[in-house]
Design a protein around this nucleic acid. Sequence first.
DNA 1: CTAGGGATATTG
DNA 2: CAATATCCCTAG
Length: 441
Amino acid sequence: MEIIDKWVAEFLIRCQHNPRVSPTNLLSALRFGDSGDCLKLKVSSVLLDLSDSLTRGSVDEGTLDLLEILEKLLLQKSSVITESQKSAYCWTAAECTLRFMWPLDPLDGLLTDALERIWTKRIGFLKESGSGLVSDELLKWETDLKKAVEDPEMYQRIRESNIRYTAISFLNQLLKEQRGLLGSSSLESVAQRRFRKRKAENNVEGDGVRGNEVPNAVDESTRRLASDNTERGTCEGDNENRNNRDVDGVGCPENDGIDKVNEQLAAEEEGTMGSQEQEHESSLDKGDKMAARELKDYLLEIQRQIDPSTRQVQEPNNAFDHSVNVTPQPSKVNRTGTSGQDHIETPDNASEKGSSSQGTWSGRVRPRLSSPVPLNVSPLKKTNSPVRRPKKFWTPEEVEALRAGVKEYGKSWKDIKNANPAVFAERTEVDLKDKWRNLVR
DNA sequence: CTAGGGATATTG
DNA sequence: CAATATCCCTAG
């Protein structure tokens, strides 16, 4: 397939929530082969489908289909099926059954139909094909659910448990895990490289934005503008979704799969900033200066719109020499959503030029700004989701692996986890440490 | 990244 | 309410 085709497909699949383009339809339309790249595209599209259905709040038998497809794809990539995928499948299957347990009377036929359809046929088929999705947990659910038809006590207990919540938690965990393993898309890598360069320049130019841990409105605007500026003309979609997703995936503590591209970029960024710190003036050529100036003007304009109190501070003549970061906005990022993953986008009116009549802006002609989507997730510091992970008891297998690990590596939790990624797939290093703490007590 | 304190949930 | 297990936060 042509490289450009691939890029476009990659962009459509990974970067947008676009209900008009169903990733799976797109893929079948393009007739991808089975090369590594194409597999990655397919996995991406399935992840996007999963994520979309989660956003819609639907955990149904379609979700089971997706999980099964994902398993097949991962097997082709010869990846391991993680615990979170098994659990996600198991709890989703339970949730699909649970919805037929709504009537108090188990004998109305709906439940038995569901059991037959989901557990006997679908999962029976998985068992025959030796699928990795068939876990002990799944088998236990099967027994319990089938027992529930005749055992009112069991029926009641299952009905009252919060299966949906657990299913969604595991699905989210799976998404994070897999997105982390996926890494940046090729388009994304190029975009990030350019964006980081621009951002570094912009920061150096201001006087002290760098090293400030707390994100503020200006920083975020910078990101948006820089992103907008570098990307405009090559694509029309919003880039922020993509960035958010990547931050989500990579920031997940359970992920060891931070891709090389990102590490490389991070290293590159530090390098660039370090060198520019000493001689930033000379390292910026004329074109860059112009671009930086334009960016700075946008920022000043936006900041006036956002915070009227800064208006008199601005001096249009030497704005170039001033820090953009005059009045840091209180940081309100993250923590507002419930899932910390997908969020509602709101229009950024502050950047609309139409409302600039009140500003003291000098009247220079500027290209019109598109309306960037605000970042709901701080790019600087990814905090954890407000939702607590579901409590999961340690299996004897895990405990054994931990004991062996400590014997071999001592208290290097990270090494222990890396030595046995399959067993500790859903434990963080901190979990290992905590568990050891209470083992030796 | 690790250690340690603390929050939260469960059990008796 | 105390004991216990797990998860979360943060200083160093």
